[in-house]
């Protein structure tokens, strides 16, 4: 689902395009009106034309498609270019060895995703192009094969993120349960746009697809890169409300830890609010299995 944040105001060319469409349709309508004498058919046509006009407007009122990932090509910048040296840390080199040992020696390239993940954790939550090159070297493939994987998965960030990267689930169940407000609240509270990092470098907000917590929708994920790959956590905070996410942000800002899971105090994990309502007793076995009854 696409956020409403990208309205047409940010895209002036869309506005002008729709304006020209409108003027064209008006022209057509007046033309038709001039050509037709019958007042009945002219009103009929006018109505149809107006309907079509409304349709065209509708098309442009829809938010234009935007993509959750960043650009699909690399632009050199001082902190992200192929000339920068990037290496796995000594501790992570051990981990790299262990990860690769899990795959057959002739299929080293299978380790691309875990290695990219490790590199991302080491590099504060995002992958510069030199990190991808380093991974390519480790698994002995052409760099482009790694770029393909890194651009495919939205969990790999190719631009800078905050130490706490907040990901709001935007898939249908969460959206129905109010994920849009949650995201808007987060963005407003932090004073950033989507995929932008706060000035203090602590937070960034992104959007992601379903994480499978629909029963506790809406949910956010906090990827914590504040302690490198050793202290890396990726926690779900479920049943959040706009108030609660602000609290979560503040807790994180203070450097405190927060137990993951549902934020609704009246629920236990994914159980129903206020305790179980069904299956309260020991379930009866099916009659055919009740050997004593026979």
């Amino acid at each position: 689902m696409i956020s409403n944040g990208l309205n047409s105001a940010t895209y002036p060319e869309i506005v002008s395009a729709s304006a020209s469409q409108i003027s064209l349709s008006t022209e057509l309508r007046s033309l038709l009106l001039a050509e037709l004498n019958s007042s009945w058919s002219s009103t009929m046509l006018a109505r149809l034309a107006a309907q079509r006009l409304a349709e065209i407007r509708q098309v442009f009122r829809q938010p234009i498609r935007s993509f959750s990932t960043a650009l699909n090509y690399h632009i050199d910048s001082p902190d992200n270019n192929p000339d920068l040296l990037w290496e796995f840390s000594d501790a992570n080199k051990e981990k790299v060895k262990e990860i690769i040992s899990q795959y057959p020696s002739n299929y080293k390239q299978s380790a691309v995703i875990p290695l990219l993940d490790l590199a991302q954790q080491q590099h504060g939550g995002w992958l510069p192009v030199s990190a991808m090159n380093a991974v390519a070297k480790v698994i002995e493939v052409a760099p482009i094969r790694v770029y393909e994987v890194a651009t495919f998965y939205s969990m790999f960030n190719r631009t800078k993120v905050g130490k706490y990267h907040l990901l709001v689930c935007g898939t249908t169940p969460c959206m129905i349960r109010g994920s849009r407000e949650i995201k808007d609240t987060l963005l407003k509270h932090l004073g950033v746009k989507r995929n932008e990092v706060t000035k203090d470098g602590l937070f960034s907000v992104g959007e992601m697809e379903c994480m499978g917590c629909c029963v506790n929708a809406p949910m956010i994920t906090v990827a914590d890169y504040s302690n490198g790959s050793e202290g890396y956590t990726y926690n779900y905070y479920e049943d959040v409300t706009p108030q609660r996410v602000v609290e979560i942000v503040e807790i994180l800002k203070r450097g405190e830890k927060l137990p993951p899971g549902t934020q609704n105090p009246r629920r236990i994990r994914s159980g129903p609010e206020g305790g179980n309502t069904t299956l309260l007793g020991e379930p009866k076995p099916p009659p055919c299995r009740d050997l004593d009854a026979c």
Binding site: N72, H74, E148, F152
Partner: peptide
């Protein structure tokens, strides 16, 4: 020459070299 690849996903998918 392994320079070309399929980058991105879904409707944002494109053919490219990623780096210039």
């Amino acid at each position: 020459v392994q320079d070309l690849g399929m980058l991105g996903r879904g409707s944002g998918e494109e053919i490219g070299t990623y780096v210039e």
